[in-house]
């Protein structure tokens, strides 16, 4: 299979129905917290989410103290008085999430030459991001007979070209959810994608709320303008 045709092959991404995509829908906070747990325990081994700050976790319904304790588990480097030497301190809620590797080269060295992308914007950075990332997480299958898989890569039904450097991340029962939700692989995939959707567009709930009010105002205002227009134009023959 040549590279060109493998990449251009059309792959059907299965559609999933999401609880937050309608014009009035908010994020399911319980799903966000479950997704965050999966991110912390599974994804964050290799992937950063550097555009989020720990304080943003307030959106998930965590208390200030809980956020402080989550942050303090990460260590950030800082320098005293502009000196060259770096010191370590526990992260604060105001800090951005720390990434698993100090730089791109270190990340590549640890991952057989491949770079695990930062996940802050991954849902917006892929066509049909929600369905695609979910399908990708569930798309690991045994390599078909005739498929020539390069060493170090893994077969994935939904990845363009089907050869992905990331080993299968989710198997089901990877974590135990605090709220008692069974951690099937489908549940885990849905929840972590919901979390990543929030990470990519943390403004979504406020945006829709303002949007609904704006639309109501504009529709009423425009109807009044139309009525006024009819009235003013009544005598123009």
């Amino acid at each position: 299979m040549s590279g060109e045709s493998a990449v251009d092959e059309h792959i059907n991404i299965p559609h999933h129905s999401w609880s937050h995509t309608g014009p009035f829908d908010n994020f399911d906070k319980a799903a966000l917290r479950r997704g965050f747990l999966i991110f912390q325990n599974v994804c964050s081994t290799c992937h950063g989410i550097q555009r989020l700050a720990y304080r943003n976790l307030a959106d998930l319904g965590y208390s200030e103290n809980k956020i402080k304790s989550i942050a303090s588990e990460a260590k950030v480097l800082y320098n005293k008085n502009g000196g060259l030497e770096l010191y370590e301190r526990p992260a604060l809620p105001s800090d951005k999430f720390t990434s698993p590797f100090p730089n791109e080269q270190a990340a590549r060295d640890a991952n057989g030459g491949s770079l695990p992308p930062d996940l802050s914007l991954i849902i917006k950075a892929r066509p049909n991001g929600l369905d695609y990332v979910r399908a990708l997480l569930l798309g690991y299958e045994s390599t078909p007979m005739k498929f020539n898989l390069m060493s170090g890569l893994h077969y994935n039904t939904y990845f363009p070209g089907h050869q992905i450097a990331m080993p299968q991340p989710l198997y089901g029962d990877d974590v135990t959810f605090e709220d008692g939700t069974p951690s099937s692989i489908e549940q885990e995939a849905e929840d972590v994608v919901t979390f990543l959707a929030w990470a990519a567009m943390p403004e979504m709930e406020e945006r829709k709320r303002i949007g609904v009010i704006t639309m109501i105002f504009l529709v009423i205002f425009t109807l009044l303008l139309y009525a006024t227009k009819r009235r003013i134009w009544k005598n123009v023959k």
Binding site: P23, V212, T214, M215, L225, T228, W233
Partner: peptide
């Protein structure tokens, strides 16, 4: 007034995209 009414319709479509499908 005719332009204002047209602007209202324009803003409804514009706001629809900005807020719901940015």
């Amino acid at each position: 007034i005719k332009d204002a009414y047209g602007l209202g319709v324009f803003l409804i479509l514009f706001a629809g995209v900005v807020f719901f499908a940015p």
